[in-house]
């Protein structure tokens, strides 16, 4: 991994304490939302991050942007470790790394007009002066496919898809090199989803922005991503190039996820037999021993409940964390 890496995350962990008591708050447990996650996002590429609710994918996104200060690990952005920066120093870096939210209604201040929303990043960074500012707002609106006459409208006057366009315009305002997209289309209707996906795609082509694309919809992730990481219970189960992951998923969890996605074609569906996983995702407060997936894994065998697998290269640019693959065995416990 050379200089073309925008974001490199190493050994990231985010543990939330569970406290009880009103005055003297005692720690009674830890939620290991993210537990030892490493990956890199290269310039102008999209890394998809998939997993089910509670797997920690959103927490990873927030840790990368330092909205949560991680418990341990580092996040290198353009070569600097964000985890060692103060809030003041971070404010200098923030314009170059932005966030697009899941719920476009929630993410816009209801008392701001469209122009205020899109212009806000510029006020904050002190770049909001003169006619250039109005021009830039009009330009941003047109980039995301909104008409300039809409600049004076309030968020509730827009449809869901248009609100998400506003959210995108705001994220673009400071010309970032990296955007975390946290489920940016999952709150939208199917026909609108495709519009926003195409928009994100176009912007990447045009401005070379790198995305960390967090989503639970595997087909959307395949469409947008160059590489994909699958998370389960705070850890990365598998990470690979998009085609390798979708055509030859190695981790049993990835295989089950892919087979669970219903395909919009009755003829195809009639022939498919989805892998139905047993049970539910365990609590991250008290994760299973060994491989965290073993209680639900259809391929679990002898060592799974005791040996913790490591994420390791199984082939070129394809890493997996599963004891079925010898590279994943930790050095202390040879297969």
């Amino acid at each position: 991994m050379g200089e073309d890496v925008v974001v490199r995350v190493a050994g990231l962990a985010m543990h939330f304490p569970i406290t009880s008591g009103l005055f003297l708050q005692r720690k009674i447990g830890l939620v290991k939302a993210v537990d030892g996650v490493s990956f890199a996002v290269r310039k102008g590429e999209t890394l998809g991050l998939v997993g089910e609710s509670g797997c920690g994918k959103t927490t990873v996104g927030k840790c990368v942007l330092q909205l949560y200060r991680p418990t341990s690990g580092s996040v290198f952005f353009e070569g600097q470790d964000l985890c060692r920066m103060s809030e003041g120093q971070l404010r200098q870096v923030r314009p170059r790394m932005q966030l697009i939210f899941q719920d476009p209604g929630e993410s816009l201040d209801p008392r701001f007009t469209a122009a205020d929303i899109v212009g806000e990043p510029m006020w904050i960074q002190g770049k909001a002066q003169g006619p250039a500012y109005r021009e830039r707002i009009a330009e941003l609106l047109s980039i995301v496919g909104l008409a300039p006459y809409m600049a004076d409208r309030y968020p509730h006057e827009f449809s869901g898809g248009q609100r998400q366009r506003l959210g995108v315009a705001r994220a673009l305002a400071l010309e970032p090199t990296f955007i975390v997209c946290d489920e940016p289309v999952s709150a939208l209707d199917v026909s609108i989803q495709a519009q926003i996906i195409n928009l994100l795609d176009d912007l990447q082509q045009k401005y070379g922005i790198a995305y960390l694309f967090i989503a639970h919809d595997l087909s959307v992730v395949r469409h947008l991503s160059d590489r994909v990481a699958v998370m389960y219970l705070g850890k990365i189960a598998e990470i690979a190039g998009r085609d390798a992951l979708y055509q030859e998923p190695l981790h049993p969890y990835t295989q089950a996820l892919l087979s669970a996605v219903p395909i919009p074609d009755p003829a195809v569906e009639a022939k498919r037999v989805p892998i139905i996983l047993k049970g539910e995702v365990p609590s991250p407060i008290n994760p299973p021993s060994g491989c965290v997936f073993h209680p639900r894994c259809p391929k679990a065998f002898g060592p799974c409940p005791t040996v913790v697998p490591v994420l390791a290269d199984v082939s070129q640019d394809h890493q997996v964390s599963c004891l079925l693959y010898p590279p994943s065995w930790p050095p202390s416990a040879p297969p």
Partner: peptide
């Protein structure tokens, strides 16, 4: 339009989706 706008896992990845333009 609806059927064309969803990406499908069983088909080769399209370079571009075909959304239904406009709003309901």
């Amino acid at each position: 339009g609806l059927l064309a706008s969803v990406p499908r896992l069983d088909e080769p990845r399209k370079t571009r989706l075909a959304p239904i333009e406009g709003q309901p």
